[in-house]
Amino acid sequence: MIRKGTSDDIHAIINITAACATHMINNHIYQWNASYPNKEGFKKDVTRGELYVMEVDTKVIACITLSDLMDAVYLPVSWLTPNKNNLYVHRLAVHPEHQGKGHAQKLMDFAKTFAIKNNYSSIRLDTFSQNPKNLNFYELRGFKRLEKIFFPNQSHHPFYCYELVL
Rank of each mutant, 00 (worst) to 15 (best):
R3F: 09
T6G: 05
D8E: 10
H11A: 10
I13E: 11
I14L: 13
N15P: 03
T17H: 15
T17D: 05
A18P: 00
A21I: 00
T22H: 11
T22S: 15
H23Y: 15
I29A: 07
W32F: 05
A34C: 09
P37G: 02
K39P: 01
K43M: 11
V53K: 05
M54K: 13
D57F: 15
V60K: 03
I64W: 00
I64Y: 08
S67P: 05
S78N: 11
L80D: 06
N86I: 06
N86Q: 15
L87C: 08
V89Y: 00
A93S: 06
A93T: 01
G100F: 09
H103D: 05
H103N: 13
K106R: 12
L107W: 03
A115I: 13
K117V: 02
K117C: 10
N118P: 14
N118Y: 14
S121Y: 12
S122H: 06
I123N: 01
D126K: 02
D126T: 01
N131Y: 08
N131H: 06
N134I: 02
L135W: 05
N136L: 12
F137L: 06
L140N: 09
L140W: 07
R141Q: 14
R145N: 04
L146M: 11
I149L: 10
P152H: 10
H156K: 10
H157D: 08
P158H: 14
C161V: 07
L164I: 02
V165I: 03
